[in-house]
Design a protein around this nucleic acid. Structure first.
Length: 457
RNA sequence: GUGGAUGUAGCUCAGUUGGUUAGAGCGCCGGACUGUGGAUCCGGAAGUCGGGGGUUCAAGUCCCCUCAUUCACCCCA
C-alpha cells in the first residue's frame, strides 16, 4: 500500500506561488503594524497546558492540540488513578498554542521588567485548533496579532482597529465592516432583560447568531438555553435594527440599559471610542452591533470583528481583556488587541481574483549552448546577478528550443545565451519572451537591456 | 464532536439497467524543427477506478465499513 502523502487534515503544503502570495500579504500586514509603532514578538509553538486551559471557554479547551508526556512520564501517567476520569489532563503537559493573545499575556507577566510600561507588540505566527476544517477554516493557520498591554486609554482601541482596517484597505478590500460591541453592553442587556447571571455566557452565544438565524431563531435558541419567553422577547427587542447609524444605535440602547449602571458605563466607553475615531478612515467602517458577542471568555470590554459579505466567518476579531494578564501576574494589567486571520484574507482575495497572474522566480534565465560552454554560462549568470538581477541558470545543455520553453513555462521573461559566435564577439544574445524581441549586445550591456524591459512590460 | 455531498490519468471530467482490453479534453514527453519558446500536425507515456470487505458467472457501477476532500452545524481567524 502506497504511503499517504497528503499533509494532516486541515493543514497544507504551500507551493511556491502560495508562499509568494502569502509573503505579499504578510509584508503589507507587517508594514502597517510597524508604521503604527508596534514591536515584533515571537513565542514558542507550545505552551504549558495550564497556561492555556480555562482561558477560552470549554469549547476552546477541547479544540486544543495536546502534546503527550514523553517516555517515563507517559508511563507513569498511564498508571495514574485519574487517567480514566480526565485522560487529556493526565496524559498531556503541553499544547500547541491556540491563539497569540494568551502567550502575550504570559510574556508580559514573565518579562515585566524588560518590557516598556505600555507594550505595543505585533506577532505573526501560526496557531493550531483541532477543529473540523471547512471554508476559510484550517487546523493550522497564521494569525497576525496586534495588541497593547498596559493602557486602558480608548486610543488603544482606535489604534488597533485603524491598523487592521488599513491593512485590508491596502490589500484592496473595499467592502469590509468593523463591527463593534462591548461585553458590558451585553451584560447590561442580560441584566435589563432579567436573565440570571449564570446564563450569561450561554445567552451571549445565542445573541451572536442573530445574523445567521434571525430574530425568531434567536428566540428559539434562548428558549432551549433556559431563558424565559419574556426575557427572550426583551432581548430580541434590544437587538432590533435601527436606522440612523451608530449614534442612533447608542441612544436606543441607552433607553434599554437604563436599569444597568454597568451597561450605561459600557455605552459611554463605546461612545468614547467612536468619538476618537471620528473623521478617520476607520469611522466609515465602524458599526455598533449589539448582537456581536464573541465566544472567547477573556474579553472584558470592547469587542470587535471584521467581516466581508462573501465569507461566513470573520477576517479578524479582537477586544479588550483587562483581566487576562492578571491571571499570570497577580495584578491586573489592562490590554486590548486585534487579530487578522491570514488564511481567510487569502481565501477571499483568491476567490475575488485580487492577486493577478503568477509571479516569476527570476528576471532572466541563462541558457547553456552546449556542455563545453557551461563555464561561460555560469560566468554570465554571475555577472548578471552582480547587477542585482534575479538570474536562473538552465541546469543542463538540453536542446536550445527546449531551454527557451523551460524559461517561458516558468514565467521567466528573458533568456540570455552565449554560443560560440557570442564568445568570439564578446556579446550576449538576448530574447524577451513576451514580445519575441531579440538582440545581440556587448556583454557589459546585457543587464541594462534586461532591466529596461523589466520596467516596461 | 454532529449532519450532507463528493472520491475514475498531473488537472477538469465522461463512463448507459452491473457485461470484453476504463475514455476525452487540457497538461506532460518525443518527433516534424541540429542557434531561439508560444501555432499546427504526428506519435507516446501515464489509472491498485481512494482503501478494505461483501453480493454476483461478472463490480468503476450495487451493499457495508474505512480513509480523504468539501459544505454546513458547534465554535472561531
Amino acid at each position: 500500500m502506497a504511503a499517504i502523502t497528503q499533509p494532516p487534515s486541515g493543514m497544507r503544503d504551500l507551493l511556491p506561488e502560495d508562499v509568494r502570495r502569502r509573503e505579499r500579504v504578510i509584508g503589507a500586514v507587517r508594514q502597517v503594524y510597524e508604521s503604527h509603532g508596534f514591536e515584533p514578538l515571537e513565542t514558542p509553538s507550545c505552551e504549558r497546558l495550564d497556561v492555556l486551559l480555562g482561558k477560552y471557554g470549554d469549547e476552546g479547551d477541547q479544540l486544543m492540540f495536546r502534546v503527550m508526556h514523553r517516555r517515563d512520564k507517559l508511563r507513569s501517567a498511564l498508571d495514574d488513578g485519574a487517567l480514566r476520569t480526565d485522560p487529556e489532563r493526565v496524559l498531556a503537559d503541553m499544547a500547541l498554542r491556540y491563539d497569540l493573545t494568551v502567550p502575550l499575556a504570559r510574556v508580559v507577566a514573565e518579562h515585566q521588567g524588560k518590557l516598556p510600561r505600555v507594550f505595543k507588540r505585533f506577532q505573526i505566527q501560526p496557531v493550531w485548533r483541532a477543529d473540523r476544517p471547512q471554508k476559510g477554516r484550517f487546523r493550522e493557520f497564521l494569525q497576525c496579532d496586534l495588541d497593547v498591554a498596559g493602557s486602558s486609554a480608548r486610543t488603544v482601541e482606535v489604534e488597533v482597529l485603524s491598523a487592521a482596517s488599513e491593512v485590508l484597505q491596502r490589500l484592496g478590500f473595499a467592502d469590509f465592516r468593523v463591527r463593534i460591541n462591548h461585553r458590558g453592553v451585553l451584560a447590561g442587556m442580560i441584566e435589563a432583560a432579567g436573565i440570571p447571571a449564570e446564563l450569561e455566557a450561554s445567552t451571549f452565544v445565542a445573541i451572536d447568531k442573530l445574523d445567521k438565524i434571525g430574530r425568531d431563531g434567536v428566540l428559539r435558541e434562548l428558549a432551549t438555553r433556559g431563558v424565559t419567553a419574556e426575557s427572550a422577547a426583551s432581548i430580541a427587542t434590544m437587538l432590533d435594527p435601527v436606522d440612523g447609524g451608530n449614534d442612533a444605535e447608542l441612544a436606543r440602547l441607552r433607553t434599554f440599559l437604563a436599569p444597568s449602571p454597568r451597561g450605561l458605563a459600557a455605552l459611554d466607553d463605546l461612545a468614547a471610542v467612536l468619538a476618537l475615531a471620528a473623521g478617520s478612515p476607520l469611522a466609515a467602517r465602524l458599526a455598533v452591533d449589539p448582537s456581536l458577542a464573541r465566544g472567547l471568555s477573556y474579553y472584558t470590554g470592547s469587542i470587535f470583528e471584521i467581516t466581508v459579505p462573501d465569507l461566513a466567518g470573520s477576517l479578524g476579531g479582537g477586544g479588550r481583556y483587562d483581566g487576562l494578564i492578571g491571571i499570570f501576574l497577580g495584578r491586573d494589567v489592562p490590554a486590548c488587541g486585534f487579530s487578522l486571520g491570514l488564511e481567510r484574507i487569502i481565501v477571499v482575495m483568491e476567490e475575488r481574483g485580487m492577486f493577478g497572474g503568477p509571479t516569476a522566480a527570476a528576471d532572466a534565465m541563462v541558457g547553456i549552448f552546449d556542455a563545453s560552454l557551461t563555464r561561460d554560462a555560469l560566468a554570465l549568470a554571475r555577472e548578471l546577478r552582480e547587477t542585482g538581477l534575479r538570474v536562473d541558470l538552465h541546469c543542463d545543455a538540453s536542446k536550445i528550443g527546449k531551454q527557451y520553453q523551460d524559461a517561458d513555462s516558468r514565467g521567466v521573461p528573458c533568456v540570455a545565451l552565449v554560443g560560440p559566435d557570442e564568445v568570439g564577439r564578446g556579446t550576449v544574445s538576448l530574447k524577451w519572451l513576451k514580445t519575441g524581441e531579440r538582440a545581440e549586445v556587448p556583454r557589459g550591456e546585457a543587464a541594462a537591456w534586461i532591466r529596461q524591459r523589466l520596467g516596461t512590460t
